[in-house]
Design a binder for these strands. Structure first.
Length: 447
RNA sequence: GCGCCCGUAGCUCAACUGAUAGAGCACCAGACUACAGAUCUGGGGGUCAGAGGUUCAGAUCCUUUCGGGCGCGCCA
């Protein structure tokens, strides 16, 4: 079996991957908070961990990998946005989630095994909070429940920061109900206007981090194999997830491997609404504001995979053009995707998802004329999109094209260039691009 | 300020556990083309951010400086 090695944020090193149960490899990735269109930065973990999911399925078998990616549908940003737009929270989260699902599908991401929603796991959240209170790791105060950070000896090990450092750097006023300024909210009270659920501490709603502890527990168990997300989540989100889960279940680890993708910039700048370079997945797929045109999902996907997932990535129109050019060439050289992918490509991915090396292998396969290997390798990466560049043409249309090409060849033999050009123009009008080569004339659909 | 990640050809990145630094794109020149595109062949291009150290040997390991990113604010 292929040996997999992944960089573990907790150990700051690449480590050999050994699933707890090879018959059921379990991974959890923090999904979107559904209050607005997902931007291209949100797409990075989706794509990175989709490649990981595909790799694990390839190595352990498609039925032996469980991938959980949550939908966060309770959050104060959601409440604010719904109020702003004058719609219900449910309407907002349903609408936003539908767009998100369309977006990631267009990017070629497989559906995760489970996409749990936070609002459907309130009972699990309450159960975890009760365990934490019972074991002295949490306390209720003024309708809130807080996690007691000093109660956990090794708090901070994921982000490698000591409590002293954090306290020294703290800039926020400490709420009066906190026993320690580092304590964070597990549950907070809701006003009548805010969404809320009955709990032992009154009507309220969950804090930010508890949802992931609840959903990963429900769907993957107390300890599982891989937990992923963006680097920005290392602290405080993942640090606090670890605190909640490890203390609630009295376990030394929550997940055996913690993987984090790097950040994204747009044309060299931090992406922000104030800079006007904020770009959504939806706009890239359907609009024309980035690079003056829309882009197929597979192009966005290839552009994202050119950069190793832990490196910062600079999102540029030039990179998209290069990705499209490469993708077209791959498909023109590709054969049938039904066979086995390149072993070198699998080895590249097995080495901490080295997608740049995997892409180099795609180029090598193309250069070597290994058409079927190339197609199967594209498929493994989720880049096999023949409909884009090898349009399935109906036979009648193809016959018409062939007839026009034959007529054009006759005209050219007769040195009747005017007629030849006219026939070529007619083909162009049909959306066909012709190529005169050594072995006759071939053609393809223009994009 | 503190913590973490990262600096390799014009651009995006390989080279992991040390041994003449590689690929794609871009560029240049040929081939093929009525022309062009596409394709094929070949080519130029790098004091591996800088400086020390360990070593027979360092892009790779250690120290340090400089530069960039992220976190320390419920912004992926």
């Amino acid at each position: 079996m292929t040996e997999l090695r992944f960089y573990d944020t907790l150990r700051r090193d690449k480590v050999a991957f050994a699933p707890i149960d090879p018959a059921r490899v379990r991974m959890y990735v923090c999904g979107p908070t559904v209050y607005d269109y997902a931007h291209i930065g949100n797409a990075r973990p989706i794509l990175v961990f989709d490649v990981l999911f595909r790799l694990l399925r390839h190595v352990y078998g498609a039925d032996h990998v469980t991938y959980v990616r949550n939908i966060t549908d309770v959050d104060d940003k959601i409440n604010a946005r719904a109020a702003e737009r004058g719609i219900t929270i449910r309407q907002l989260t349903e609408e936003t989630n539908a767009v998100f699902q369309d977006d990631v599908k267009a990017l070629g991401a497989l559906a995760p095994t489970v996409q749990p929603r936070a609002t459907e796991h309130i009972a699990e959240m309450i159960a975890i909070i009760e365990r934490l209170i019972a074991s002295g790791h949490a306390y209720a105060a003024q309708g809130h429940v807080l996690f007691s950070v000093p109660s956990m000896a090794d708090y901070g090990k994921l982000s490698r920061r000591s409590l002293d450092e954090m306290i020294a750097g703290a800039r926020v006023d400490v709420a009066s109900y906190k026993k320690d300024e580092m304590d964070f909210v597990l549950w907070k009270p809701s006003s009548a206007a805010e969404p809320g659920w009955d709990s032992p501490w009154g009507r309220g709603r969950p804090g930010w981090h508890i949802e992931c502890s609840a959903m990963s527990w429900k769907h993957l168990g107390e300890t599982f194999d891989i937990h992923g997300g963006g680097v920005d989540l290392v602290f405080p989100h993942h640090e606090n997830e670890i605190a909640q889960s490890c203390c609630a279940f009295d376990r030394p680890v929550m997940a055996n491997v913690w993987m984090h993708n790097g950040f994204l910039q747009v044309e060299g700048d931090k992406m922000s609404k104030s800079l006007g370079n904020f770009v959504t997945i939806h706009e890239l797929l359907h609009g024309t504001s980035f690079g003056g045109r829309s882009w197929p999902g597979a192009v966005l996907r290839l552009a994202m995979l050119r950069t190793h997932y832990r490196q910062p990535i600079d999102w540029t129109a030039k990179a998209l053009e290069e990705a499209e050019s490469a993708l077209r060439r791959f498909h023109q050289a590709a054969g049938s995707p039904d066979g086995a992918p390149s072993e070198q490509l699998v080895a590249a991915l097995a080495d901490d998802l080295n997608t740049p090396a995997a892409l180099a292998e795609l180029h090598a396969l193309r250069a070597a004329g290994k058409a079927d290997r190339l197609a199967a390798s594209l498929a493994l990466l989720g880049l096999w999109t023949p409909q884009l560049y090898r349009a399935e043409i109906d036979p009648a249309f193809a016959a018409k094209v062939d007839a026009l090409i034959a007529a054009r060849l006759d005209a050219r033999k007769a040195k009747n260039w005017a007629e030849s050009d006219r026939l070529r123009d007619e083909l162009v009008a049909l959306g066909v691009a012709i190529k005169d080569g050594k072995d006759g004339t071939s053609w393809e659909m223009k994009r």
